[in-house]
């Protein structure tokens, strides 16, 4: 295969320089700073730090509550991604089938994505309120059944639903766009061959949107590890009893609220490595099954 390349390397360097500069300023520099702090005990107001090697990492990795955070983060990532993707896919398939009112839903479904995470949290705080919310009707039938302020599992469910609700809109746009890019002639031909809607979906539409599916999967998993902070902060504050203490929320609580910059830096480094590893795994093992046309 013949490769195109620039003879003068400095042109290439010049062309990528702005991009590299941005990546350096907004990623490599802060990341290296975090790495450095994670190996020290940093005084928040400046004034120096003490080198402690890997102590911050040892402390974290030997802390049962930290592993709890890791576990909760995985549960949240998997559950909210599965929920958000499956709901979005179902909705997109219906919108694509041009059922009644689909024009409205095509636009209306996008709105939730425009709502800021804390606002979503506030809305769901009302929905899930055990005393006055919509779910309080459950408590009228089964007194004391629903109380996410005490029951950790229920708190996790609450955060998962709120988190998924927000990303459904985003996923929906991509799924719908992918479905609409499938040539109508393919669908019509299979319909003439006698394939019903379910069969067409299974054998035709889903395989054809696999690249989009993969993209959405990577984005959703990454997002649920790094961008779930706002909802947790408003809805549960990490509680009850650390039940919803996601990794990213713990970083905020320890670093910004608690002024433990070094501990938070070590957690950030771990989270960064974790997200990178997850993305790598997805590209290595799942992307193989994706066929790009």
């Amino acid at each position: 295969m013949r490769r195109a390349y620039f003879k003068a390397n400095w042109i290439a360097a010049l062309l990528v320089a702005p991009q590299l500069l941005i990546i350096f300023v907004f990623f490599y520099w802060p990341a290296s700073q975090a790495l450095y702090w994670s190996l020290t005990l940093e005084q928040p107001w400046g004034g120096g730090n003490t080198w402690v090697g890997f102590e911050n990492f040892r402390t974290l990795l030997s802390d049962a509550y930290y592993w709890n955070s890791v576990r909760v983060s995985f549960v949240f990532a998997i559950a909210s991604t599965a929920l958000a993707m499956s709901m979005a896919l179902v909705l997109a398939l219906f919108a694509d089938r041009q059922l009644r009112g689909y024009k409205f839903f095509r636009v209306g479904m996008i709105w939730p994505y425009a709502i800021a995470a804390p606002a979503v949290g506030l809305a769901f705080r009302f929905v899930f309120n055990p005393h006055a919310g919509i779910l309080s009707y459950i408590n009228e039938v089964l007194p004391g059944f629903w109380d996410p302020t005490v029951n950790g599992t229920q708190a996790v469910i609450m955060v998962v639903v709120a988190g998924a609700w927000k990303s459904i809109a985003y996923n929906f746009i991509f799924f719908l766009a992918a479905l609409q890019s499938i040539p109508r002639s393919l669908i019509e031909a299979s319909a003439m061959d006698g394939a019903g809607p379910m069969r067409r979906m299974r054998d035709l539409q889903l395989p054809l949107i696999a690249p989009t599916f993969f993209f959405i999967l990577v984005i959703n998993i990454t997002d649920s590890f790094t961008d779930s902070f706002g909802i947790v902060d408003v809805l549960t504050g990490g509680g009850p009893a650390r039940a919803t203490d996601l990794l990213v929320y713990k970083i905020y609580a320890d670093g910004f609220r608690g002024f433990d910059y070094s501990g938070a830096a070590a957690q950030s480094v771990i989270l960064m490595v974790l997200v990178m590893a997850l993305t790598f795994v997805q590209f290595r093992y799942i992307e193989r099954r994706v066929h790009y046309t």
Partner: peptide
């Protein structure tokens, strides 16, 4: 020192006790 985190530890542990853990 670390008083904000100590307060958070207290809250989390008390919540655990109140949840019967």
């Amino acid at each position: 020192g670390s008083f904000i985190q100590i307060r958070a530890e207290w809250v989390n542990e008390v919540q655990a006790a109140l949840a019967g853990q």
